[in-house]
Amino acid sequence: MTDLDELLSIARDALDGAASRFVEGVGAPSAVQKGRNDFATELDLELERTLSRELLARTGIPVHGEEFGGPQLLSGTAWVLDPIDGTFNYSSGHPLSGMLLALVQEGVPVLGLTWLPGLGQRYAARVGGPVYLNGQPLPRLEPGKLSNAMIGFGTFNIDGQGRIPGIFRFNLMGALSRLSGRMRMHGSTGIDLAYTASGVLGGAVVFGHHPWDNAAGVALVRAAGGVVTDLRGRDWTIESGSVLAAAPGVHEELLDMINDEVSRVADSSDER
C-alpha cells in the first residue's frame, strides 16, 4: 500500500481507536525503568503492542516503536511510534502528553500525526501539507520575528553531560531569554513541534535525538511551511542529534543565537 492519503486515514483511525484507552490510563505508574529519569508505564507497552498490530495488519508496513524497537529507518518504509510522549507528565496526571506516529520512507518522514487526547487535539499532515487540526486545515506559517514568538524549550539537568551538556542548555536558555521572554517548557517534544506547526509557538528547541520523539513533529512543521534543521543548522535527518524547528524568520534568529553561544563557549575554552 503506497497511497499516502489512504495511509493517513488508516493512521488516524488507529490513533482514534486508542485514544480512549490512553485517557483511561492517565496517572499510570512507572513499570519499566529505562534509565535516569526515564521510564515506561504498562500503558506504553500495551498501546505500542495494540497500535503496532493494527498498523501492520491494515497496511503491511512494519512499526518501529519506542518500547520494542523495529526495522531500521534509513531505507524502506516504516511506521515510527511513540505510544506515550511526555511519559512523566502522563504518569503524574498532567494533560500535556500524547501519541506520536510518523510514516518514514527512505529515512524521510512523509506522514506525521500527533494526538493529544487530554486536550482534545489531533494534528495530522502528509508531505506537502496542509496540517490538519481536528480535521480542519490550518494556514501555512507566515514569516515571524523571535521577539514576538513563544519558543518551546527542551528540559535539562544543568549538571548533565552527554551529547549536549546541561550547562550549554542552561546558557542557551539564558541567551534566548534576552531575545524572547516567552519560553515554554512543556515536557513533551510532540507538543512543542505540533504547536510550532500550528503557529501557537514560533519555534522549538529540541535536544533529544530519538526518531520516535521527532519524526512526527518534523513532518508536521515541514508540511506547515516551517524550517527544520538540527541545532547547528544542518538539514534534519532521521539520524540528527537535535531539532531546531520554527517559522521562517524565527528559525534564522534562533540559529544565529545558537551559533553565537557556540562561539562564546569556544572562545572561553581558548582562553583557558
Rank of each mutant, 00 (worst) to 15 (best):
S198I: 03
G181A: 08
W212I: 06
I191V: 14
I158Q: 06
L244G: 09
T237G: 15
R232W: 10
V228A: 02
L201S: 05
L244K: 05
N171W: 04
R234A: 15
L193V: 07
W236S: 00
P248T: 13
T155A: 13
V218G: 10
M150C: 12
A224H: 06
S240I: 03
V206Y: 09
S242Q: 08
F207C: 09
A224K: 06
R178D: 07
L220S: 07
G203V: 08
V206Q: 13
I158V: 14
D192I: 00
T196Q: 09
I167S: 13
G174D: 06
T196N: 09
V228E: 01
L220K: 04
F168A: 10
F156Y: 15
L193N: 03
T229R: 00
D213K: 00
S180A: 04
M173K: 14
G190E: 01
A224F: 03
H209L: 02
F207V: 05
P211A: 14
R178K: 14
A245E: 12
V227N: 04
F153P: 13
V206P: 10
R232E: 12
V228Y: 00
R222T: 05
R169K: 15
S188H: 01
S198T: 03
R182W: 07
F168D: 02
S198H: 08
V205Y: 13
I238A: 04
A224M: 08
L179N: 08
G202S: 05
G190H: 03
